[in-house]
Design a protein around this nucleic acid. Structure first.
Length: 207
DNA sequence: ACCGCGATAGCCT
DNA sequence: GGCTATCGCGGTA
């Protein structure tokens, strides 16, 4: 593998919008059930508490749930939503400045049968084409596929051995910048172009 | 392919 | 008690 493991929090200590773009094309590694899963990040969204009504920490809101948003760059922020799902974010910026990047979609690179059983309880070759893309093309679908839940909240992903990132050494793709999903309540912030994805990638949650 | 809607529980006021 | 950074199903086309 020509990728390099990220072992330094300074990689993440930048503006969430910049990190959201920087993460595209990088490889998320998850070691679980004696397997090493590799998945490419293909869609992200930025959330910045100081200026963003869609962010859980807008208005410097500090609660038990949102306190992870104030953690240092490179921390995981995994929260529970809609009564049955989770979402996975990576914290950016200075400690105390609440901002982060929601990971919205991944492209699996290996262990297809493992992911297929996790999501649909049958082998990959039995999936319909739509189901194959459906493995990880949404923020909570990827959490189901990778067994990400609150037990992995507030983990430093640059110093973890079972949940970490590999850098990419090329970026020969076009980035689309558009509006975020599921934040219609957020007034002017719903129009911010803070969703980013790799153009033409088939695992994007919503074109 | 697209649209509408119900499920479900933790979080917050 | 109201809301939610979602998903999957069933109906229609």
């Amino acid at each position: 593998m020509t990728y390099k493991k990220i072992k330094d929090d300074s990689f993440f200590n930048i503006d969430a919008r910049d990190l959201a773009k920087k993460l595209l094309g990088m490889i998320l590694v998850r070691i679980i059930d004696n397997r090493t899963l590799h998945l490419k990040i293909v869609e992200t969204e930025a959330y910045i508490g100081n200026i963003d009504k869609a962010c859980h920490a807008y208005g410097n809101k500090k609660t038990e749930r949102t306190k992870t948003l104030y953690e240092s760059a490179g921390s995981s922020y995994i929260y529970f939503i809609y009564g049955k799902y989770h979402c996975f974010n990576i914290i950016s910026g200075e400690k105390g400045d609440p901002q982060g990047v929601l990971i919205r979609a991944l492209e699996p690179l290996d262990n297809f049968d493992y992911l297929s059983f996790k999501r649909f309880n049958k082998p990959f070759e039995d999936l319909k084409l739509k189901e194959k893309y459906n493995l990880t093309n949404g923020p909570s679908k990827l959490c189901l596929a990778l067994s990400l839940d609150k037990s992995l909240n507030n983990i430093k992903i640059y110093e973890n051995d079972e949940f970490y990132l590999l850098d990419r050494n090329t970026s020969n793709f076009e980035i689309v910048e558009t509006t975020r999903i599921g934040i219609d309540y957020a007034e002017e912030a719903k129009d911010f172009l803070w969703r980013y994805y790799i153009k033409d990638n088939p695992y994007i949650s919503k074109q």
